Simulated assay, not measured.
Amino acid sequence: MQKISIVGAGRVGETTAQILAEEELCREIALYDVREDVSEGVALDIFQTAPFFEFDCRLTGSNDPAVMAGSDLVVVTAGFPRKPGMSRSDVLAANVAIIDEVTDHILAHAPHASILVVSNPVDTLTYRIAQRTGWARSRVFGQAGVLDASRMAAFIAEETGFSALDITTIVLGGHGDTMVPMPRYCTINGVPVSNFIAPERLDAIIERTRKGGAEILALRKNSSAYDAPAAAVAAMVDAISNDRKRLMPCVALLEGEYGERDIAMGVPCVLDESGLARVVELELDDRERQDFEHSVAAVRADIQRLAEL
C-alpha cells in the first residue's frame, strides 16, 4: 500500500502506527485526531524511531480530516474506551456520533479506501459504517477475532507450555462476552488441543478468552488493552498489503452465511489485496450453533439500539 490513515491517536492508534511503520507495510501513515497537535506529536515521535528500527515509512499527523486524502486503507480506532466494569456495548451511545462523523470524513476525503474498524462495539460499528457508506463488504470490515484468537492461543500456551508459534485457534461471534471460541478447531502443530488439555481446563480457557479484554482492563485500571489489539490490526494489514490470502477471523457483513443477513459478526474470512475477499462457512455442531445464535442475538440487540440513538 502507498498510504494508510489511522483515525484516533490514542494508545491503540499510536501502537498500530508504530508497528505498521516498523514493518513497512506502506509508504506513508497519516494519523488523524480531533485533538489539536496530538497526532502531530505522535507521528513525530514514531518517525524519530526510524533510525533505530530501520524503516523508511513517512508519518504525518493532523486534526484536519483532509490528511486522510489518498488513503488505500483507513483504520478507525477513535472513540471512548470502556472503563472497568463496563461492557463494549456500554460505550455504543457515546461512540456512534463519533463514528458517524469519522465515516463522513472518510467519504469526503478517502472515498476509494477500505475501512478497518477497531472501535467498540466493533460488530455494531462495522455494521453502522457499512450502512452509512453503502460500500461492499470487501471494503468495510472489523478487527476482533484475530485478537480474541491470539488471546486464546496465549492462554493455551500458558496452560500447556508449548510454543505459542505452534498454536492455531479460531473464535466466532460478537466481540464481547458472547463470543464463541471454537476448541474443536484449535490445534497445536496440527494436533487437536483436546489431546493436551482436560475438558474442565479447556472450558476455563474459553471463559477467560471471553473476558480477556476485561481482565487486562481490570489489571491496568487506567487503560484498556492496546499492544495486542494493535498487533492484531497489523496482522490484518499485512495480509491485505502483501496479498497473502490469509484465513483470519474478522468482523464481516453476513450475506446468508451461517443463516444470517443484515448483521456484522466475527467469522473466518480470507484477506487479500482486495480487502475481505470472502467469508468461510464452518460446520457447527449443536452446541456451537446455539452459542453462535446467542451471540447473534446480542449483536442484533445493539444494532436495534442504533435506531434509538
Results as ranks from 00 to 15, higher is better:
V251C: 04
G256W: 13
G145F: 09
Y127L: 11
I263L: 06
E283S: 06
S295K: 04
A144Q: 04
D203R: 13
Q143D: 00
F53L: 13
G85M: 09
V270E: 05
E23D: 08
D45M: 11
G79A: 13
L282Y: 12
E158S: 06
D45C: 10
V67Q: 09
I98A: 07
A113M: 07
N195P: 00
L165S: 14
S89H: 12
R184F: 03
L202M: 15
R35F: 05
T169Q: 13
A149F: 02
I240S: 07
E22G: 07
T103H: 03
L271R: 01
I303T: 03
L254H: 01
N189W: 05
E308W: 02
E28P: 02
K211A: 05
F55N: 10
T169P: 13
L172I: 01
I263A: 04
A154E: 06
T15K: 11
I156Q: 04
T169M: 12
V140C: 07
A93E: 14
F80R: 15
T209C: 07
T49N: 07
M182F: 05
G174T: 06
E281G: 00
T77P: 12
R151V: 11
V74N: 07
D177V: 15
E40F: 11
P199T: 04
E281F: 06
I156C: 04
V75S: 14
A94G: 14
V67C: 10
W135D: 14
R137V: 07
V296I: 07
K221I: 12
R184V: 02
R300G: 08
L172Q: 01
A154R: 08
Q143E: 06
A214S: 12
R137W: 01
I106F: 00
F53G: 03
Y226F: 15
T60V: 14
R27N: 13
T16Q: 11
A30E: 10
T124F: 08
F162H: 15
P65Q: 05
L107Q: 10
A113C: 15
I98V: 15
C57D: 06
T178W: 02
I216D: 05
M265N: 00
C186I: 03
M179V: 08
S224R: 04
R27V: 00
